[in-house]
């Protein structure tokens, strides 16, 4: 125990009259009080030259060789990296060389630190992380002296002029934020679907009612808008489903937007989830459900995609389908309600 503190018992400095509660830190403590027992952070004299292998030169020598060998591996890996890079690179080889190089370097450093560097714990003073009382008083005095000089007689300048002016100017300064984005207007109420738009697949080929098999599914886009990577088109992808003939009559909810063709019924729903906007595309034929891959919202196709499980709060909007005399499917109109996740004004007029 003796080595831990050198017994510099300074008299406990009392009367630390601070305007705050400091408990537990200023008791009559071994070696450290509110005073300056040691110069800040400088440990008392201790034997810094001792290290764990000091008394065993042979072991120390062996350790030096081991460390040297480890670091030479690092050097070798460096050469290997250069060769690897020069010959075209290969991710796994690069990873192996980098990991071995750093690993050996670190292993050498650890051995060095643990066996060949002073290994004794030293004890330092924490010192004080706060200021003396007089300094605090001086700061308060300086601050109030300056503030008084500013505010006496001319306080109105700050209160009545500077603050309002600053407010106005501050608002003016954030004005450019408006140029970051356009006014959203009715953007969320419309998609790229338009009356008469033919349904096309991902390569832009129009789709006939007879193309989709019973229980079949196809992702469709409005003709001319098959590339969904624009804000206008991103909300328009839809899922075309052939639910067959028998199930057509079992539907509990039915907006009458489907197309009947050859005894089969084709329905088309927005592919954008009403929860968080992911593409709702998992199709469970056995239960006639669409499932969202992001948060597992489940929609019952036979109830016009009413959500039956998961966080989605609303049905997927349905596209009013029509079939042309030449057999191609088309949209009678855009979706009648906003597509995708909710927002503050969603209930407003479209």
């Amino acid at each position: 125990m003796e080595t831990l503190h050198d017994g510099t018992e300074t008299p406990h400095e009392e009367a630390f009259e601070l305007p705050r509660v400091i408990t537990g830190t200023h008791g009559p403590e071994e070696g450290a009080g509110a005073g300056t027992p040691w110069p800040d952070d400088v440990p008392p004299e201790q034997d810094d030259s001792w290290y764990p292998l000091k008394d065993d030169p042979r072991k120390a020598r062996r350790m030096e060789y081991l460390i040297a060998a480890l670091w030479m591996v690092t050097g070798g890996c460096g050469v290997g990296l250069m060769i690897c890079y020069w010959t075209g690179g290969q991710a796994q080889v690069e990873g192996a060389l980098l990991a071995s190089a750093f690993g050996c370097l670190g292993a050498g450093l650890v051995l060095w630190a643990r066996y060949l560097l002073p290994g004794q714990d030293v004890v330092g003073s924490r010192g004080e992380h706060y200021s003396e009382l007089e300094e605090r008083a001086a700061v308060v005095a300086s601050l109030s002296r300056g503030t008084d000089a500013m505010m006496s007689r001319r306080g109105f300048l700050v209160k009545k002029v500077l603050v309002p002016v600053g407010g106005i100017f501050g608002i003016a300064a954030v004005w450019p934020l408006a140029s970051l984005g356009p006014r959203y207007g009715r953007a969320l109420y419309h998609t790229a679907w338009y009356p008469g738009a033919r349904l096309v697949d991902q390569f832009g080929r129009p789709i006939k009612a007879s193309d989709v098999e019973v229980d079949g599914v196809l992702t469709v886009f409005p003709e001319g808008h098959a590339d969904p990577n624009t804000p206008q088109n991103a909300m328009s992808p839809a899922v075309l489903l052939n639910i067959g003939g028998a199930l057509m009559h079992e539907r509990k909810i039915n907006q009458g937007f489907e197309v009947k063709s050859g005894g089969n019924g084709l329905v088309c729903f927005s592919k954008i989830c009403t929860h968080a906007g992911c593409a709702v595309t998992l199709f469970n034929v056995l239960s006639m459900q669409l499932v969202c891959p992001c948060h597992q919202s489940t929609f019952d196709i036979l109830e016009d995609c009413r959500p039956v499980f998961g966080p989605a709060p609303r049905p997927l909007p349905q596209l009013h389908l029509g079939v042309r005399p030449d057999g191609y499917l088309f949209a009678v109109s855009d979706f009648v309600e906003p597509v995708g996740p909710g927002f503050w004004d969603r209930g407003g007029p479209a």
Binding site: I207, K208, S210, D211, V212, E213, D215, G216, V217, L218, F283, N284, V285, L286, S287
Partner: peptide, 13 residues
Amino acid sequence: VGPRPMPGFGPGQ
């Protein structure tokens, strides 16, 4: 074929 619950894809799709 469409091994259920997977849907089948016909030649039209």
